[in-house]
Amino acid sequence: MEAIITQQEAKRHPMDNLLRMDRMPHIWCPGCGIGNAVSAFADALDKLEYNLDKLCVVSGIGCTGRVAGYIKVDSFHTTHGRAIPFATGIKLGNPDIKVVVISGDGDLVSIGGNHFVHAARRNIDLTVICVNNFIYAMTGGQVAPTTPTPAYTTTSPFGNFENPSNVPQLAEAAGAVYVARWTALHMRRLTYSIVDALKKPGFSVVEVISPCAMYYSRINKLGDGLDMMKFYYDHSIIKHGEPTDHLEIDYQKEIIVGKFVDRERPTYSESMGKWFED
């Protein structure tokens, strides 16, 4: 009898205690990289052996915004673009809680861009995982501030001519203390970057280049999720410490990945504490 229980216990998914397996299968398309980002995040939590009661995940709106619903910790699915201000409130009201924002490129850099910039400037103690699929996926594949030139999207039917945002450069310029980028296939390196970011006090950003196997892929004829994954992985070049102004991503060209920024700045709470102490 006991042997059977042991066998069954051993056959539970190792991430059972971190993810809401009762909600699987999740909504993401076959070959979407968002699941990989979640997998790396869960593995990072496992490695850090965090007290899950002292951890909170906040997402905005979008395909990536759905992450909050699948992680088995206190999690919040907020309004579009407002994950960072919501997370800031949680952090300032509960300084002993680790707050993580997991959201999409559109949510964080477009509608939420101003919050991103000012949370980085204030150095609020948050870890931001930005899943960059170069598009507004959930709403049908519109052009995003991260869409490379000249990719097609449903709202750039003649190709995108806008100059795209470079997320690591934006984060560094605004004041983030830790900035890294990996593709959704660099599972081990991505996991260790998330571990580092979670350990780092202050505003840390990990960008995950992820295939949208539905909208971005279809309109640009990039194949399925596996084709895109392979392409991104095979075209990524690891260059730790690369100046962030070299990190633009051109359409279907090489992608520089690695850890780019790791520096010390007083966090918002530290500055406030010091100010009122004197």
Partner: peptide
């Protein structure tokens, strides 16, 4: 454990 990590649907693992 790589298959477990890389599966976006949490559908495979090894013991």
């Amino acid at each position: 454990g790589f298959c477990q990590l890389v599966c976006p649907d949490f559908a495979i693992f090894s013991i």
